[in-house]
Design a protein around this nucleic acid. Structure first.
Ligand code: ZN
Ligand code: ZN
Ligand code: ZN
Ligand code: ZN
Lengths: 164, 164
DNA sequence: CTGCTAATGTTATAATGTTGCAAATTTCGC
DNA sequence: GCGAAATTTGCAACATTATAACATTAGCAG
């Protein structure tokens, strides 16, 4: 059994990216939505690691690509990707991360490591139901739930424990 | 029994503000922290309603006051108020709201009405424990938990139900 | 091809938040 | 009280994040 979730341990990340892109193509086809080259490239960049990436970071890489892009290009692509459930915006960081549950209906909960910056997206049914229940007690009708947990991932906790 | 939580129904809001300010003075005294006039005024402005207020909105009112303030004035006051648990930042809105549980240790959960803009802060022990448990399952050490629920408050849901 | 729609390019601007340093105020030991 | 030290504020410039408005191009149906 793995002692750590994927983002925190070495792995063939190219496979992560390849799978994400393949699923994205699939999902867009199902949605009759066009995963244009710009959109696909932005998705690929967002997936370049398990750390969230800012819109202007994406923009900078596009510029390196030789793509003559301005902020709206990136924001539009990110809007599209969010709409189709391919990326999430982490509002406590003003940054974006690839969705690891694309296609499935889910309420993400994000564990954000303050030390290494990696983000793990969980589907936490217990949390979702607790939130729904708490909202219901106030007769509140939830529409969109944001759960972002900043803290320390297992790897960074361990390193901090036996450092100098 | 009240059919709605405080923010959603008419009430003597001046009393809310007065109580919040009184508690703030108390808490700051306990913390040996100085609730200076600027800080107190900013807190009062944040409490002007149960809707979150942006930093630049605060700044604009300070300007009307004749206070010659620049952004750092506001952000510093807000940092101070957050540090002492008197206001919360709602990161999905880039805005600030007065804490309704100041002094007590709590994990806020915010119900944000998309229609009227009011925000209700709850202490939801069930949610907090579910989050802690989910994090523990990933050996993640939580430090700060953000839970923001956008949706429709009872009042606005009711109005939408019998509108034209 | 033609005409429609979705997508992108382009420029400018808005909104939000920070850095760095100097001046003023408050605190506190004496 | 008095002066050094620390906290708080004023101020100017700047950095980052996001959007508005309008022109242009690419994709597609008939
Ligand atoms: Zn990976
Ligand atoms: Zn997701
Ligand atoms: Zn009130
Ligand atoms: Zn609170």
């Amino acid at each position: 059994m793995p002692t750590s979730a994927l983002p925190y341990r070495p792995h063939n990340h190219d496979a992560c990216v390849a799978q994400a892109l393949a699923e994205a193509r699939d999902i867009c086809q199902q949605h009759h939505a066009r995963l244009t080259p710009t959109r696909e490239r932005v998705l690929e960049l967002i997936w370049q690691s398990h750390k969230p990436l800012g819109a202007y970071d994406v923009l900078a890489v596009l510029a390196e690509d030789g793509h003559n892009a301005a902020p709206p290009t990136v924001y539009r692509a990110l809007d599209f990707l969010q709409q189709h459930g391919l990326v999430h915006r982490i509002s406590s960081l003003n940054a974006f991360i690839g969705c690891t549950h694309a296609g499935k209906s889910h309420n993400g909960m994000f564990l954000i490591c303050r030390s290494c910056g990696n983000v793990l997206e969980l589907t936490a049914p217990g949390v979702a139901s607790a939130v729904t229940k708490a909202a219901a007690q106030e007769s509140f009708r939830p529409d969109d739930v944001t759960i972002e947990v900043a803290g320390y991932c297992p790897r960074c906790s361990a390193e901090a424990a036996h450092d100098g």
